[in-house]
Design a protein around this nucleic acid. Structure first.
Lengths: 226, 226
DNA sequence: TTTTAAATGTACCCTGCATCACATAATTAT
DNA sequence: ATAATTATGTGATGCAGGGTACATTTAAAA
C-alpha cells in the first residue's frame, strides 16, 4: 500500500478528519481498500461481525431477513461508515449489507478503530454523533412504515431516493420492483400498481427503471397523509 | 447537594464507572437529581432538546407521535441513560419520554457529558456501545412490527415486558390497553380481543392489569410465527 | 441467436384488522 | 354518594393490500 495514502485521501469521514498525522499512519497500516460489484454481499446477517467498514463511494443496502420477507432498512451512500452498530453492538451481525452499485470500501481493523475512540475524543464524538443521527433516522423510518399505508410508504421511498441518495428528481432506480417493495414495505405487485397510479396522476414519469418526480409537492402530500 | 454524592452513588452507569474522582466531582457540580410521578412528561417531541438524563430508577416510555397515532418505541428501565440520540442527534427532540412509574432521574449538563466523551475514552466507548445496542434493538423492533401480524406483535410485547422489563412472568401491566396497543402496534380493541384469546388458550392468566404468562413456550412460538 | 430465467404488469379473491357502535365496568372528580 | 369521565369488552362492517394466477417483457446464459 502506498505511503500516506490515508493522509491524502479526499474521501475522509468527519471522524477521520480529526486524526493527526501519526494516527493516519496507524490507520493506513490497519486499513485495506477493495471494491465490490453490484449485488455483492459485503457482510451477512448471523455471521460473526468482523471489521468496521468505510464506504468511500457507492450505494449499499442494509437489509434484514425478517420472519416473512427481506426488509431494506436503509441505503448507505459513501462516504460513510458501514456497520458500526452491528460491529460494536454484538458479536453476531444483526443485518446484511449488499452493494447496489459498484462500491469502493476500506476495511478498518476493529482494534485500531477502538483505539481511536479511546485516545481521540473528537473522533469518538464524531462517531457518536453519527450514531445518534442514524438512530433518529431509524425511528423515523419505523414510524413512517408502521403508520402509513402503501401510497404513503412508496412516496416516502421515492422522496428518500431523490432527496437523500441521488439529490436529483430524475434517477435510475438501482433496484428491482421487488426490492423497492422491500424498502417501502409492500409487495412487488403493490409497487407496480402504485407506481403506475403515480404515473397516471402525473406525479412521476416512469420508464422501466428511469424515474422522474414531476410533482414533488403532491408526492410529499401523499407521504404526509399516509 | 451533598459532597461526593455521585462518587458513592450505587446506581452508576457502566460509563460513569469509568470516571475518576475528579471527574465524578465535576459530574456532581453539573448534575441535578429529581423525581417524576407516573404519567409525567419528562421531555417532549418537537421541543428543543436539553439535557442528558440518567434514569436512576423507574420505567419511562419513549413515544413518537406519528401521522396516525402515538407509537411507543421502547420502554427504558433505570439505571440507564435516556435521550442521548435525541440530545446529540438534533437540536429538536424527535420523540417524547413519559414516566410510567415513579421515576428518579439525574439531569446532566450536555457540556459536562460532552467533555467526558472528549477526555475519557473509556467513557466514550461505553456510551458508544450502548448506542450500538440500542440501534440493534430498534432494528429488531422495526422488523418484528413490520412483518408480524397482531398476535405475533402482542406476544412480542408481552415477552418484552416479562423478560426485559420485569424479569418475571407475573407482572402488573403499567399501562392501559390503549397504550399496550401503541406498543404492540394494534388498536385498543384488537388488544382486548387478542388478550382474551390468549387467556382462553391458557397462554396467559388475565385479571385486569395483572398478567401472568402461563405458557411461555407457546407464546414464543406465536411471536416467531408472526 | 436461441434458450432459460428473472422481472414486471394486471386481474381477482380473501383475510386481518381498523373502525364504528354500543354496553359495561372502573376511576376520578364533585 | 353521585356524577362525569375514562377504560374495557364485544359484535358487525368495510377495505387495504397480500397472495395467487397468468400474460408479457426484459435480461442473462448457453
Amino acid at each position: 500500500m502506498l505511503y500516506e495514502i490515508c493522509k491524502y485521501c479526499h474521501l475522509k469521514s468527519a471522524a477521520a478528519e480529526t486524526l493527526d498525522s501519526d494516527e493516519l499512519k496507524k490507520l493506513e497500516r490497519s486499513c485495506f481498500q477493495t471494491q465490490f460489484a453490484k449485488g455483492d454481499l459485503i457482510f451477512k446477517q448471523d455471521a460473526l461481525s468482523a471489521n468496521v467498514i468505510f464506504i468511500r463511494e457507492g450505494l449499499v443496502k442494509i437489509h434484514i431477513k425478517g420472519p416473512e420477507r427481506e426488509q431494506i432498512i436503509k441505503i448507505n451512500k459513501g462516504p460513510t461508515f458501514l456497520g458500526i452498530p452491528t460491529t460494536f453492538g454484538d458479536i453476531i451481525n444483526h443485518y446484511s449489507a449488499t452493494a447496489i452499485t459498484t462500491v469502493d470500501v476500506c476495511f478498518i481493523s476493529n482494534e485500531t478503530f477502538q483505539q481511536f475512540i479511546y485516545s481521540n475524543g473528537k473522533f469518538a464524538y464524531e462517531i457518536l454523533h453519527d450514531l445518534c443521527k442514524c438512530q433518529l433516522h431509524t425511528y423515523n423510518y419505523c414510524i413512517n412504515h408502521l403508520q402509513k399505508q402503501g401510497p404513503g410508504r412508496l412516496a416516502d421511498a421515492l422522496l428518500y431516493l431523490a432527496n437523500e441518495i441521488f439529490n436529483d428528481n430524475n434517477f435510475l432506480l438501482p433496484m428491482t420492483r421487488h426490492e423497492l417493495g422491500d424498502l417501502a414495505c409492500c409487495s412487488r405487485e403493490s409497487v407496480s400498481r402504485l407506481l403506475n397510479e403515480f404515473k397516471k396522476d402525473n406525479i412521476i414519469q416512469l420508464e422501466g427503471k428511469k424515474i422522474t418526480i414531476l410533482n414533488k409537492e403532491l408526492l410529499s402530500q401523499i407521504s404526509k397523509r399516509g
